[in-house]
């Protein structure tokens, strides 16, 4: 599903963010990528979403070599990868329903089709009946669920969650992690980027540990090492 071969990222000023990364993530896998701040986790996410290219190496997603992806092909890639962020990135002036519909409409889906799809994803994330609330009216956990629902509307094969629990309390954190596990059970490959020890240990799946831009550990049922 995801193959990284000798991937390095060096920013101007010879700042090394990633160095010689070799990873093979199979379909339907749940992988936690952990490490301290500044170890290259976010750079890895940005390379996977084609926000920036690697300096060296090859990146293959679903058999597609995106190392030198054309600008016009980036939207096609992003429709296959759902992304969730720590700060939710919801539009405050839109209801939950509208936030999700906006993502569909931005890709040319009709309003009628959006009305069919959205209740289904809201059901998956456990927010049925709250679609007409605004982000400020609900908790952080619920806002993150909407962000996850928005990431799922295109039925992506991969869900990239970059510190999704960073802004949440422990109860909401567990709910979000459970939701990610549920989505993984449905067959979506999940990449969880986190520096939260409890979250990673709770998931108890494959853990890739980064330090100084390099993989220092890759365990099938790993624990947070650092």
């Amino acid at each position: 599903m995801i193959i990284l071969k000798s991937v390095s990222k060096i920013y101007p000023g010879n700042s090394v963010a990633l160095k010689g990364i070799n990873v093979h993530i199979k379909p339907k896998e749940f992988v936690s990528i952990v490490g301290r701040s500044g170890t290259g986790k976010t750079t890895l996410v940005r390379i996977l979403t084609a926000e920036e290219p690697p300096t060296q190496g090859t990146v293959i997603i679903g058999g597609w070599d995106i190392t030198h992806i054309k600008r016009s092909e980036v939207p096609i890639l992003r429709r296959q990868i759902g992304v969730v962020f720590q700060d939710f990135k919801l539009l405050e002036k839109k209801t939950f329903f509208e936030n999700i519909a906006f993502a569909l409409q931005a890709c040319g889906t009709s309003w009628r089709r959006a009305r069919e799809i959205i209740p289904q994803v809201l059901k998956i994330v456990g927010l049925s009946g709250k679609e007409h609330r605004y982000p400020v009216q609900l908790s952080g956990g619920e806002q993150q669920r909407v962000a996850i629902a928005r990431a799922l509307v295109h039925r992506p094969k991969i869900l990239l969650a970059d510190e999704p629990t960073g802004n949440l309390d422990s109860i909401n954190t567990q709910e979000i992690v459970d939701l990610l596990l549920k989505i993984n059970e449905f067959g979506t490959t999940v990449l969880l980027v986190s520096h939260d020890r409890e979250v990673v240990n709770y998931v108890n799946k494959r853990v890739i540990t980064l330090d100084n831009g390099q993989i220092i550990s890759d365990q099938k049922h790993g624990k947070y090492l650092l």
């Binding site: 600008r71 016009s72 939207p75 096609i76 890639l77 992003r78 429709r79 992304v83 990135k89 539009l91 906006f102 993502a103 931005a106 890709c107 040319g108 928005r150 990431a151 509307v153 295109h154």
Partner: peptide, 17 residues
């Protein structure tokens, strides 16, 4: 700018934006 960021995130084409 927020909408544009989200549009790009969810795979809207540059043409659409």
């Amino acid at each position: 700018r927020e909408e544009i960021g989200i549009m790009k995130l969810v795979g809207a084409t540059n043409w659409f934006i």
